[in-house]
Every structure is written in structure tokens, then in C-alpha cells.
Simulated scan of single mutants.
Amino acid sequence: MTGNTRWVYGTDHDDPAPYAFDPDHTYVELVGGPLDGQLLDVTALTAEERADGALLIAPRSAYGPGGRADYEPRPGCTTRWDWSGDVPW
């Protein structure tokens, strides 16, 4: 997946390189919800962990800062995870 101009999830707002894209890493695009369009580095996740998706801290979730956005792999697509809702933490 290319996308070196996309924000990588986990970088800070004042990070000097929030669009840092490592071509040796594997990323998925987050689709929908408060993190729409960001890339998530899944390089270190096992296949089982990737199948589970992730609850990601979202500063603009329905539950306010610190709430979690639930992203799940899109069936049949290894490069996109879809938002399935927000959850409190």
C-alpha cells in the first residue's frame, strides 16, 4: 500500500514527521469514523491479531477524548479496516 502523504495513526499532532511511511512496514487504511483516512501500522500483528481488528484511541470519538473507535478488517480486503462504532473506555 502506498500513501506516504497519509497521517499514520499514533503520531502526535506536533510530530515532525506525522506522515512517515516505512516501505518495509504493512499498513491498513482506516475507513469511516473518527480516524477515517489514517494509516495503521500492522507490521507487528499476527494474522490472528489482524483478524480481530483493533480498538483505537480516538480524540474525537462519540465518548470524547480517550474513547475508542472499533475498526475491523473489511471482508475480502487486506488493506482496509472499517469503523464499526465507538466504545467508552
Rank of each mutant, 00 (worst) to 15 (best):
L30V: 04
P75C: 02
A62E: 15
L30R: 00
G37Q: 11
T11I: 05
A58L: 09
G67D: 09
D12M: 06
V31Y: 00
Y19V: 10
L30G: 02
E29A: 08
P16V: 12
T2G: 07
A69E: 11
G66T: 02
V87M: 06
D14T: 13
H25R: 08
G32V: 10
P23R: 07
A20L: 13
Y63E: 12
P75H: 03
T2R: 03
L45K: 02
D15S: 15
H13R: 13
Y19W: 09
R80V: 11
G66V: 04
L56D: 05
A54G: 12
A58V: 07
V31K: 00
A51P: 12
P73Q: 05
D36W: 01
L56V: 06
P88R: 11
P23Q: 09
P88G: 07
M1P: 03
V8W: 02
S61A: 11
M1F: 10
A69Q: 06
T26I: 13
P16E: 02
A54R: 03
D70M: 08
D24T: 13
W81S: 07
W81T: 12
Y71I: 12
G64V: 07
Y19C: 10
Y27M: 07
E72W: 07
R6K: 14
P59Q: 12
Y71K: 01
Y27A: 04
R68V: 13
I57C: 13
A47P: 13
D82T: 12
D14I: 01
P16M: 06
V31L: 05
T78L: 08
P73F: 00
L39S: 07
V31E: 05
Q38P: 01
D24S: 10
A58P: 05
T2C: 00
E29C: 00
P75M: 01
A44K: 08
S61W: 09
D15H: 15
A58E: 13
A20R: 06
S84R: 15
Y63F: 14
T79H: 06
G64Q: 10
P65H: 10
E29F: 02
C77I: 11
